[in-house]
Design a binder for these strands. Structure first.
Lengths: 233, 233
DNA sequence: TATTTTGATTGATAAAAAGCAATTTATGTA
DNA sequence: TACATAAATTGCTTTTTATCAATCAAAATA
């Protein structure tokens, strides 16, 4: 958890340019957000946010990659998202019980900017556009949680794994070919199956020429088939 | 879908008294909310909201009881909540894509008050307390969706059914003894299992003296045991 | 480079839960 | 009340998926 000068931002300017949420703010409001702001560099594997601790900050990833997950029973996790720069998060606890409801940990060396929750709340009360956009963010999370509930409870393993592959391609790596920096265990945690099942079904997809597989390198060969599997699997 | 004079409200006064959300509004703001407001009486079984249709209104249940559910694949539903008077809903689509993301249908003859979404949005921009509370509502839904995700993906049937029984007792009927107005099918839709499994496990609970069971009448005899089952099941 | 250690793979087995079919019970209606 | 329909129950079978154990491959470290 070193803080290195070369990685820190001078102000929120960078984030403003990148985040639709920040571009709504006046310079006065930006000053409020900027107060007490700090940036931290995390090594691969380190916790950025720990579920259950005090939700003191809204956090923006500025470099690297991280996983966002729910810690369930018996050390079993449910991995919800792989997040990259300019993703802002904090979770539903920011406006309820002031606790983080998920954990986030670094998959690569990762920088993150910490904005005090009370500053976010102050600005929200000053700027209705910002408030509306926060509500929209929260609602979009609601929509994707509904989709996830249906995917995880009503699809069989093949469909759930297809969903994960499409998610990785479309939302994380932005390419049909990608080099994974998550393990089979983590693929399992995204699709609610064991690492053995994840392995097995990836192999099946390879044999069916739906994907090209070389341990960490995956190429989606038949995206239509994956979408079709996603519809029931 | 009759509109009966005896069931309609004269103004939002009743709701104001009952809902923490409405009590935040000035009389001017209440007038905005009241504009174009209407109340409808639904017969048992009728749809109040249909998933996928235009999210034109935020809705308050003022009489009766309804189920709120996601429509998944192959006509398989996931029942999220049983709702009663003074519950306000509309879903995450109100502030995103202006679609309802779930269906709601009446379990009893039920009255519901419809408030135009654009009026809600106007008031939200005028009143920061209201905006903050809407965001809080949305966040609380987020928290309960996380809990549901963990319950449905990591617990076995006994634990999930225990969760449903505790929910019905604590949040719906407010008593350890209750007379169900939902079917075994619907219990299955709440706990993600078939109606046969729901029947079987209810019987098991009866034989283990955890509940007293008489088809539609249930009494929770050993709440501690149910809470323990909920922790892993 | 040799050596650990961690992650991936594979096969065999067991557990959990669904599906199916038949029957019984409850509910609503003519 | 008798009948028709819907819901609940039960036993049996099958499917899905986890678990366990062993081996293999890759990556990190001495």
């Amino acid at each position: 958890m070193l803080k290195r000068k070369s990685d820190t931002c001078i102000s929120c300017e960078d984030c403003n340019k990148r985040s639709p949420l920040f571009s709504l703010l006046s310079s006065e409001e930006l000053n409020i957000m900027n107060a007490n702001r700090f940036e931290v560099v995390f090594n691969t594997g380190e916790n950025i946010v720990k579920q259950g601790t005090s939700a003191s900050h809204m956090i923006m990833i500025t470099r690297g990659m991280a996983k966002l997950y729910l810690e369930g029973f018996d050390k079993k996790n449910l991995l919800l998202e792989i997040i990259s720069p300019w993703k802002l998060f904090g979770g539903p606890g920011l406006f309820t019980d002031y606790r983080y409801h998920y954990s986030v940990s670094a998959l690569l060396d990762t920088s993150a900017c910490f904005i005090a929750t009370e500053n976010v709340r102050r600005v929200m009360r000053l700027n209705p556009d910002f408030a509306e956009t926060l509500l929209k963010h929260c609602s979009l999370n609601g929509v994707s949680n509904f989709q996830r509930l249906i995917s995880l409870t009503q699809k069989q393993m093949h469909g759930r794994l297809a969903d994960v592959l499409l998610y990785l391609s479309e939302k994380v790596y932005f390419s049909p070919h990608f080099s994974l920096n998550i393990t089979r265990q983590e693929i399992g945690e995204m699709s609610n199956m064991t690492k053995e099942s994840a392995t097995r079904i990836l192999k099946e997809f390879e044999h069916a020429a739906i994907i090209k597989l070389d341990t960490k390198n995956i190429t989606l060969l038949d995206i239509e088939k994956l979408k079709q599997l996603s519809l029931h699997g």
